[in-house]
Amino acid sequence: MTRPDEQAETLPWAGAPVASQEQFLSPEADHPNQGKPAQGKGKLFVAVALIVAAASLTWLVVGGVEQNLVYYLTPSELTAKGDDAIGANVRLGGMVAKDSIRWRPEETELKFKVKDHGAEIEVHASSIPPEMFREGIGVIVEGSIGSDGIFQTRRLMVRHSNEYKAPGDQETVDLDYMSQTLEDNGT
């Protein structure tokens, strides 16, 4: 691969990869490992800089986390919080209340109530109801409650899947039943 005439030329980056441009351009440049000692002062400076950096980052991280928490709450818990909950990011988990769904496809406007055994909350969404959405189904809506007591949601998830399966154990596919539910539950 390497011819003798190339070997004879001693470019400093041959063998020591990633060289700086200067060394490339002027082969006689100083060996880089010759920084002038500025030890004592430099070390203190570095230590102080590190502590300041770590402290400010920690402050930023803690502050940032506090502002961006999303709480998982049930309707009762959200109601119990009263005014404190206004504007906070919440994932509200509950059931879609009976006879509460109002869906206007023309405006893509969906209104329904999410309830648990103790409380009921009006939820407004500007999204299409997902395939499985219907009365009595478990949902999680992400958003926040306004001072008018209406929960505006950006994200609506149906939570009714059988997700507690052990790895690898599938029952035989029950196609009749599944295709039937696919038909039955169209909104």
Binding site: E131, M132, V158, H160, S161, N162, E163, K165, Q170, E171, T172, V173, D174, M178, T181, L182
Partner: peptide, 11 residues
């Protein structure tokens, strides 16, 4: 598409 897998309610 919406796919429904064996034994799962949610597509």
């Amino acid at each position: 598409r919406l796919n429904r897998y064996s034994g799962q309610m949610n597509p």
